[in-house]
Design a protein around this nucleic acid. Sequence first.
RNA 1: GGCGCAUUCGUCUAGCGGCCUAGGACACCGCCCUCUCAAGGCGGAGAUCACCGGUUCGAAUCCGGUAUGCGCUACCA
Length: 496
Amino acid sequence: MTEKVRVRYAPSPTGFPHVGNIRTALFNWLFARHHKGSFIVRIENTDVARTVEGAVEAILGGLRWLGMDWDEGPDVGGDYGPYFQSERLKLYQAAAKQLVEQGDAYYCYCTPERLDEMRAEQIRLKQPPGYDRHCRQISATNNVLKLISGSRRVIRFRTPMEKQTTFTDYIRGEVTFENAKIDDFILLKSGGYPTYHLASIVDDHLMQISHILRAEEWLSSTPRHLMLYKALGYKLPQFVHLPMLLGADRSKLSKRHGAVSITEYQTQGYLPEAMMNFLALLGWSLDDKTEIISRKDLIDNFSLKRVSQTAAIFNREKLDWMNGVYIRNLSSGDLTRRVIPFLERELPPEVKRPISVEYVEKIIPLIQERIKKLEEVAGLTDFFFTGELDYQPDLLIVKKMNRELAGKALETSLLKLRRLPAFDEESLETMLRPLAEELELKTGQLFGTLRVAVTGRAVAPPLFQTMIALGKERCISRIKRAIAILKEMPEETDSE
RNA sequence: GGCGCAUUCGUCUAGCGGCCUAGGACACCGCCCUCUCAAGGCGGAGAUCACCGGUUCGAAUCCGGUAUGCGCUACCA
């Protein structure tokens, strides 16, 4: 790459940033960082009607969360600003005017009603829909008359009606379109705002964008863009059309596919580094086996040559696995720090806040290899925080035991526990294992009963460590309570 | 309907004419470990490389056609 790499992520704030969109941003960012170029963020807010409140913040927040920093754009500025298209209207209007003067564009006075009717008719006659060029030949004098009369007008491109447009896409290779199949598309809307086609071409030129990495859905629009580049006399960038991201049913990713907005992944407790790793592997690969790749290795090795040309389906299960891998690789201090906000948010309201960091750090090693998402932590550890446990009494009667046996097991355990001089893993181990034998129980039966007594559930982290984290006093009182619960149960309750 | 792009295990992918009786990962199944659940280890099943022709001594890899999927076809991006 001889010229300086300047790429851009140009989201439209018409919705929340979905993962496909962010993946496009990621490839741009990786490409820029790999080549030590510039990553530019430009907000394409030219569709006033569809603009969604808060979308810009959500988009920028998503980028920040993933650690994709931008060299130019909102907040940071830059030499080619402003970076909101709504603040660059004069630039587009000037370009449109230039095209009209050159004869490459013309004013169109067709009303939306006429266009709708025209389209309906074309569809009825099974003709390809497209503007019928009704206003293409209006004379200069008529234009003046219309202007005076106050008619609303748009500016359309005077698309060449013969020959074809060919370009080389970095990923797809040579692509050719018949010019005659492209209608006279709108450049400037009646409200003075540009369409995407005009605005992006003007800005990419002015901002000296070297490579346009965007989703494949833009491939069909590229010939229009080429025509504009030519008419405006701009230098061509390299076009790179990235494969699309699809939902499980192979259709374009949308809300019915579950979580699609990047912010949802953040709130569910996916780690940003796992998310980046996963997204990078959707349409790009390092080699035939590497799955876990650090951010640095991603940057060092990213290459357009290894971008695939086929659309990919967003596979949640693999993301979950990968997130688990990243979680397991965290230090307990780091995991604790990340988990605290989730506990603050999800633990029952009666648990007093703030949650103790020291206490959480003791619990973390017990669940670190058992979670895939940070939001799962509260549900797995609430018994460490709550006072009295609430559980089904028959849980206390583990497989092949009965009420009497369970009661005996608990009472003997309680007795021995009280006399235990030290409360650590080793002493619990040397006390409890022989006890099982003594009671003629399998360790699973004894430990299972104790587990329910102490945690209120049949599935929990390893018993000894859990008891230690809970503390001797709490274990004793919970076992006492379990004994009482058993006593209140009807006689015939047995477990098979 | 027209135009464009794509097509390797369910999913993400490796593969760029002989290394492929197609490799890895997720998910799935079994075994081991084990106080439950995980994690981990080992193993298994899973792709006639969409289909049909052609080129070649030889094709998942090159060419053509068909089918299917997706995208575009807005005063949306």
